[in-house]
Design a protein around this nucleic acid. Structure first.
Lengths: 173, 173
DNA sequence: CTGATTGCAAATTCTTTGCACCATC
DNA sequence: GATGGTGCAAAGAATTTGCAATCAG
């Protein structure tokens, strides 16, 4: 499993899964299966979205794309439309955080949840089988058929705790 | 504990806590402590918000308030402003769901999480000590100082499963 | 009285939509 | 060459904000 474990079901690292198709290929299949088209905009966006494993929102994505007039420019509307298609295709997951919609790689990564640092706004991932077990117990108790879940732990990350401590020391000197 | 239990730390009911002050009184204290004022609008809104234990969003609240021109009318802006004060005062909790901000009674109720039926959009509450334990383990593993968390289990509630099943039977007949 | 509060309307922010033109299948 | 896709600008939805009038302490 991973380097640090607690009991045997909580891991600190969320590692990529082995998948037979790349996100690009998988998206192609999705498009084909629905009679949708393979456009340059869609291809370019998928490449961008999967070029790094990270969380992002529409604004952040748009920011790192070419501007209007530049090569490979994609309009805002198309970005939003494509993001939604990615979610439908199972490539991305999305959830609301602080009022914005955050997208998260779904395809190629195991189900996981998040730690959210309210100071630096970083999202960390974690994975816990126990959490899933509890989820299922709770659902069973309510006769609830689970489709998915989302857990976000808010707080202060290690780095932010450290820098806060440092600052305080300096203040005292 | 409650009527149904699973292990000893998951309960189906989230019961009110004993609190020494009513939400109204507690809000008064909050206002006083900050040199804010006790207005009719604020009093009226708190009464409305705590008249029933339920989740709601700003729109739903506004819908059941008096209209413009009627007695006790409160403007949209004031509703939003007061909701935020309630959150600051610790009376309400809020979180994002399907793009809207949902408010939840915090004061007078134990910490709890939610089951969300994607068919009827109902929110059910549950409480699990085990969940908290896992949260704390995960956080510890990451050197993360927990402030709060939010877990939402999405799926289909018992009632919606039933009616779906009924429909299918009828379809077959 | 003085500063906080309110209502109103305008402004924001994020996202979606209508439509004419364009491109894939 | 049909149909779906794109860019653009305008429309929406949900909140927030500026400001003058009003009100609580």
């Amino acid at each position: 499993m991973s380097d640090e474990t607690l009991g045997d079901s909580v891991t600190t690292k969320v590692e990529p899964l082995q998948v037979s198709l790349s996100p690009q290929e998988r998206f192609s299949e999705y498009l084909q299966s629905r009679g949708l088209r393979q456009t340059n905009q869609r291809k370019f966006l998928i490449d961008q979205v999967f070029s790094q494993h990270d969380h992002f929102d529409a604004e952040e994505l748009i920011e790192r794309l070419p501007r209007r007039g530049e090569q490979n420019y994609v309009s805002t509307a198309t970005v939003y439309r494509t993001l939604r298609e990615c979610v439908d295709a199972g490539l991305l997951n999305c959830f609301q955080l602080d009022g914005r919609t955050v997208y998260d790689h779904d395809y190629g990564y195991p189900q996981h949840d998040h730690l959210y640092c309210t100071r630096c706004r970083k999202l960390l991932e974690f994975q816990s089988d126990e959490l899933i077990a509890i989820r299922d117990s709770v659902a069973a108790l309510h006769g609830f058929r689970v489709e998915s879940h989302r857990m976000i732990i808010q707080g202060i990350c290690r780095e932010c705790s450290r820098s806060r401590r440092k600052k305080r020391k300096q203040d005292l000197v």
